[in-house]
Structures are given as C-alpha cells and as structure tokens.
Amino acid sequence: MTIPLIQAMLNGNRRALARIISQVENDGPEARALLAELYPRTGQAHIVGITGAPGTGKSTLVNALAQLYRQQETPPKVGIIAVDPTSPFSGGALLGDRVRMQNMAGDRGVFIRSMATRGSLGGLARTTADVAMVLDAAGFSRILVETVGVGQAEVDIANMAHTTIVVEAPGLGDEIQAIKAGVLEIADIFAVNKADRDGVNRTVMALEMMLGSGMQVVSHHGRVMKVDTAAQTPAWRPPIVKTIALRHDGVSDLLQAIEQHRSYLWQAGQWQRREAERLRHVLLHVVQDEIMARFRRHVSEEQFQHVVAELLARRIDPYTAAEQLIDAVPQQR
C-alpha cells in the first residue's frame, strides 16, 4: 500500500514533497518507511555536485544552470539542494543561497531546498543524499547539489554525485595555492567563474598546469585511473570552462560539459560503476550511523561516564573499555 504522502507527491503535490523531505531530513518517525517505499523509484536522476570556496559564485551558477536546463526543448525537472553550515554555537543556521535563485518561483519544474549541515563536518548534511533520493523519486532528473565549500566538502560531494563541478574564481591570491589540494582528484569539470574579473587567464593557466599537459594519468572520483592506450574508451579529461554566472555567460558551455560527462559515463560503461560506488558510500554512512545509534540506545550516559572515570583513574585503557562497551550492545536492535 502506498503511503498517502507519497501518493500525493507522485500526483505532483509539492507540499507533500516538501513534507517528505522534512521527514527525511529530521530522521522523523516516518522517514524509514518513506525512503523504503521511494527507493525503487530512484536511480533516474543525474546528480551534479557544485563545490568551491565560499564566494566563488556557486549559487549564482546553480541558478543560471537551472534556468538554462529549463529553457531546453524538452526541459528536465531540476531539483536544487543548497547546503550551508550550521553554527556550532547556537545550532542555528543562516541559509542564504536562495538570494541568488530568485527567478524560478513560477516554474513548477524547479524545486529548491536549503539544508543546514546540522553537525556534519563535511560540505553536506548527513541526510543530503537521502533528500536527493526523494527528489529523484519525485521525477527531478537533474539534481544540483551546492556544497558548503569548506572542510572536506570535495570528498563528500564526489562520493554522492555523478558529476562534480569545482568552481574557482580569480583574485583569491596566489593561483596555485588558492586551488585546493584534492580538487584535481575529484573534479569532473572546472568552472572558472567571474571571468569578467582580472586574472581569469592566470587561474585557467594554473589549473591547466596542475592538470598536466600529457594527461598520462587521469584522476577520476578519487581513483587514479591509468589511461590504457589500448582501451577503446578514452579517459575523461576534466574541461575548464570560463563563466560569468551573473550574466549567464559561458553557462551553456558548462551545461554542455555536464551533458558530455553524462554521455561519457554511459558510453564508457562508467555509469553503473559510478552508481555502485555512490551507493557503496551511502550504505557505509548508514551502517556507521546505525551502529552509533544502536550503541547510544544501549549504553547510557551514566555507564559512559562511569567508564570515563575508570579511564581517568587509569584503571582501564581506552581500547579495552571500548571493547567491553561494544560487547555489551546486543546483536538485535
């Protein structure tokens, strides 16, 4: 039997969609049942991650990209998830990405959701992948995910997206140093935004240099793949696209690069592999969270404090203590 809220969502009720997302985001009482029922409907969407330092123009680019998608001949429905950090002091958050995404309010084919990281240390919230699943099941075939852009944002988004765009902008200081270590490994596409500013070409050159001219070895999704010259499928070379997001300049080139990467994944037989990798990470996260949750359910704060006191008195070492605590957690939930 279909959960009424899901039925409403599938009938195009946007409030139902918003409500389901909240349930999932809050890990509410119905979240599990909702996700279980929605999951078979997922797997249709192309998830595109947009990461890069704060202020490089990620939100403005997402806005321009979404509008361009919607202007295509057969426009895909576009879901947007924009993540901003939760304040560690108050637990509150100021989610301001919508400021740059104004013009799509009248378009039913676009759905924008802001998310706070809620204690997650990476560039995404713990439930961002789940929210993407909901949008996927609701028929949004392009999902743009804007990360916080600090910390380990790149790794997180590369693990959940099919295509990862790293946004750079000129004027962030020494080009080579400004380009974060690690982005080369995860970027499928580089967008050098604010191309109206001085220094764009220096940023582009710095990227080209870092990417290397020969491309003997191509990094893809954190995995270094040797280019097999005998193989029929050439490795993907991350293109560098100049954009002026504010003026929607170069955005069609960026969209084209995304669609090319999508075709590449399909043609090279990489899509399924990428999906498997993605789902592996999803599963790993859930397992970690579940184990921790089970631990918390069965080990009281009192018990925990008691063990801390034992540690303090040097009567037990952390490893033995952890083993004993874990052994006390029953196998069944």
Binding site: R14, R15, A18, T86, S87, F89, S90, G91, G92, A93, L94, L95, G96, R98, V99, Q102, A105, G106, F111, I112, R113, S114, A116
Partner: peptide, 26 residues
Amino acid sequence: RDAGFEVIYTGIRQTPEMIAEAALQE
C-alpha cells in the same frame, strides 16, 4: 539563527509568489 533556528533568507524585492513558493519548498 543565534537563537537556534534555521533561517532561510531570501533577501529584498520578493514578490508574494516568490515568498509563498519558498515557504512551501522549504
């Protein structure tokens, strides 16, 4: 935000439609 709420800020020049849509989606 400092009081612990999650604040979705949409800025100036909002039409009633934009506001209602944002309230719904969020």
